[in-house]
Design a protein around this nucleic acid. Structure first.
Lengths: 153, 153
DNA sequence: GCTGTGAGTTCCTTTAGGGAACCCATTGTC
DNA sequence: GACAATGGGTTCCCTAAAGGAACTCACAGC
């Protein structure tokens, strides 16, 4: 994991990256999201080392993104489930999917499709403004300082 | 950078993480997005080592996310600009911002605000279905195999 | 020729990634 | 009771990467 502490920066992107800014954590979240929740299932599906998996899971639990729950008392056995924080982090994964599908899928096309419950269509996400509902892409916004900004020189 | 190759997995999340799955790259994109485009500006603003910055920039150019452009011929001087791929990756940053604002901002509140051009409001992004326009969160979708899926056993 | 500037590159040390083997607690079988 | 299986890690060790500091390069100004 990274040696620089990104959580101390007055920037929500940096803080978010402090939590999930290496590749294994988002992939673990993806797996838990689709129902692969146990240690050896995760290890096998991801092709990750047991040491790194254990470290990442511990990190994600400590950061309130996953919860470690007992699914069998005797013998004691554990699985990992998404917390509300973790659920919302999975939204990030949907945007990664969209970008990856558009730019990296190649001729084979997207590996995974998503069917929207509400309309029943195979679809993808779009970023819309919470206020007016129109598209709200990075090119559609102006950036300004917020209350949590660092005081400038 | 990571030693595991994530780009070979039949998963758009993994492929996307192969490109930007360590914290410096998204932060570099953020800086270029807000107009900090030159090497030493980036270095100073990020507090990153020259060696790592050079490596990351090279990586992002090679992956078509940034372009290296000459802004002065004599002496030759370069800046980095977003490509269309890079522009769309910045959408990811808007979702990171949203998550970070909600869960990690603390009492100070969000460090940065975003004003939507279309409605002039300070707002944030929501994920909506491209087909019907209703909210499309991770909890709102079913996952199914796509054409680019790996053949299962 | 010397200094300043911007954009890297090289060298070295420290830290983390990751593989393999190992450990632990419980259960089931003989 | 001994042994094996199971699931969930932990420890050890080697290699690769992170990151700091110093250095290099090409050009311009004086």
């Amino acid at each position: 994991m990274q040696r620089t502490k990104f959580g101390d920066m007055a920037c929500s992107i940096a803080r978010t990256l402090d939590v999930i800014g290496e590749p294994w954590s988002p992939l673990i979240l993806r797996n838990v999201y689709v129902g692969i929740t146990r240690f050896d299932e995760l290890r096998q599906n991801l092709g990750i080392s047991r040491k790194v998996l254990a470290e990442r899971l511990k990190w994600l639990v400590e950061n309130g993104v996953l919860a470690r729950e007992e699914y069998s008392a005797r013998p004691p056995r554990y699985e990992y489930v998404l917390t509300p924080r973790g659920q919302e982090l999975c939204d990030l994964l949907l945007v990664m999917v969209r970008w990856g599908d558009r730019w990296l899928a190649g001729e084979a096309g997207p590996p995974v499709l998503y069917r929207h419950h509400a309309c029943g269509e195979v679809s993808h996400v779009e970023l819309r403004c919470a206020s007016c509902g129109a598209p709200m892409r990075a090119t559609d916004v102006d950036v300004l300082p917020g209350p949590g900004a660092e005081p400038s020189a």
